[in-house]
């Protein structure tokens, strides 16, 4: 433990810089994934062909190992470092958000949309007032799983010079004498992944409208009156 603290606090190991690099390398792909997947989901969800394509391409992309994507980016961009790493991680983050956006939007009660249109909402109003508030919790679940995946994968980026905790791990793997590097890198990434999971769980809860939260139904059973009084005399 003492060794660990010593390692982290040793200026030569630049732990703070590595932490910052890791967080930036996670945040940028998460934000990019959001910027791509949210509008794309809105665009394709109501187009059967586009939604079908998006769903299946997303599934395919998820099946490709991130390691391969990193290498492809390296070859395509002919450079190492932050940019190819961020792009590869973004490719990892888009599918879960996009899939949830499509599933969420298609899951919005058609009656609510019919009512919204029938009472004179414009298409953007239907989207902003009805569809998005209802799809937000589902999209947030997608963002949560995308974020955790990105954080868990971020050490691989060190392979193409993306920096961050991955450098410790590579160091540790390259030389038995550097086992402490490996340990610090692995534990830091694991902790960051847990923290991410916790933060996005809170975000997901926060964007879930009160009317949709679990537990509401239970409250109803306790206090909710019905239109018909149960014929108690008969039952007795």
């Amino acid at each position: 433990m003492g060794e660990l603290i010593q390692y982290i606090t040793d200026p030569a190991n630049t732990f703070a810089d590595h932490t910052r690099d890791t967080i930036v390398l996670c945040l940028v792909p998460i934000v990019l994934s959001l910027l791509i997947a949210l509008p794309l989901g809105v665009l394709v969800a109501r187009q059967p062909v586009a939604a079908f394509l998006a769903t299946n391409v997303s599934g395919l992309v998820r099946a490709i190992p991130t390691f391969a994507v990193l290498m492809v980016m390296l070859l395509l961009l002919k450079q190492i470092g932050f940019t190819p790493s961020a792009i590869a991680l973004t490719a990892l983050g888009v599918p879960p958000i996009l899939l949830n956006m499509i599933a969420g939007l298609r899951g919005v009660d058609p009656a609510a949309i019919d009512a919204a249109r029938g009472m004179g909402m414009t298409r953007p109003q239907v989207l902003a007032r009805v569809e998005l508030p209802l799809v937000l919790p589902v999209a947030a679940a997608g963002v949560r799983s995308a974020a955790v995946q990105i954080v868990a994968t971020v050490p691989l980026a060190a392979l193409i010079g993306g920096g961050g905790y991955g450098e410790y791990i590579l160091n540790g793997l390259s030389n038995e004498a550097n086992a402490i590097d490996l340990f610090v890198g692995a534990v830091s990434v694991a902790l960051l992944a847990l923290l991410t999971e916790a933060i996005f769980a809170i975000v997901q809860r926060a964007v879930t409208p009160a009317g949709l939260r679990a537990g509401l139904q239970a409250a109803d059973a306790a206090i909710g009156p019905t239109d018909i009084e149960a014929p108690r005399e008969k039952a007795a």
Partner: peptide, 22 residues
């Protein structure tokens, strides 16, 4: 159509209340 609909009440079988609104 938008102005027209805003001046006409619309009630459907599935009700279609907005679950996230009070």
């Amino acid at each position: 159509p938008i102005t027209l609909r805003r001046g006409i009440g619309y009630v459907i079988q599935q009700v279609g209340l907005f679950p996230h609104m009070t």
